[in-house]
Amino acid sequence: MSRSGFKELAIAACLAILAGFVPLVFNNYWLSISVTAMMYIALCTSWVMFSGPTHYISLASGAFFGIGGYLVATGMSDYQMSFWLMAGISALVATILAGLIGAATLRLSGVYFVIFTLGLAEMIRNLVSWVQNNFLGSRGLYVLTDFTEAHIYWMLLVLAAAAYFLGWYINRSRLGFALRIIGNDETVARHVGINTATAKIVLFMTTGFFGALVGAVIAPRYSYIEPNQVFSPELSFMVVIMALLGGAGRLWGPIVGVIPFTLVWEYVSLQFPNQTTMFIGLIFLLIVFVLPNGIVGRLEQVAVKIRQGGH
């Protein structure tokens, strides 16, 4: 088990290095798609770390991502702070927020958690608009940096790799084992001595941390930011879809889900711009009814069948 774990890590490292060359070989159009894909890989990987083992569907990605983008924008625009400092602060804020949300909801059943995260991005958007309109003055924010698209891509790659490595490390730790037990049977988990609430909250906080950092890193891409446009409920759903499409049972599932989805999405939103919402709905239904364990789960099923056929 431990050897195959290192093999997996080695493969991931090779892939990450290969991915590092993308900006050098792709033209601007493909690089821009790659940035989007890398953004989702980072978000989905951190999502799977928490939601994969626990089966708690988090729709908070949009909120954390928004915190990253908004704090970077407002800090740089209104207070002349450096990008790096604001990125760090936003990660801290999102981590704390995730901890508070976790403390309020993760002690209870999973449904409360899903419901709480469902409207979260929208609610924070409302709050931010209100604060912005009444106290800070309503106007757009500028994120002016020297970062090129390639820089953003590399930063996202580093984040994705970091999330993957952390996930890999946690999977092999006592915390990861605890989460697998919680995902199986929470009552048993408590009765073998696991502090289930703490384990879940800690993991959820890492999701918040990465969500905000991704939001912060991608902010310079848009240079002009409407305070409330970064809190996008839709993003939360995209993360869930891509992660589940790939398969939440494996840490590398998102990579398998994000790449084809981003390409198809690009095509659909160009060809059928008015049908994108319906398309998302159909993919959700496809996942539930046809691919309940994602593409990875289906591949593994096929692999098992082939192996059994060989005997």
């Binding site: 006592r174 084992f177 605890a178 037990i181 199986n184 049977d185 048993v188 009765h191 073998v192 001595g193």
Partner: peptide, 26 residues
């Protein structure tokens, strides 16, 4: 330590992992 009236094992874990679960956090 307790057992349950209707036995409760962790379905996605192997037999050995089920027992390790008792050893790790107890």
């Amino acid at each position: 330590g307790r057992t349950f009236q209707l036995v409760r094992l962790l379905p996605s874990l192997s037999v050995l992992e089920n027992v390790i679960a008792g050893a790790v956090f107890g």
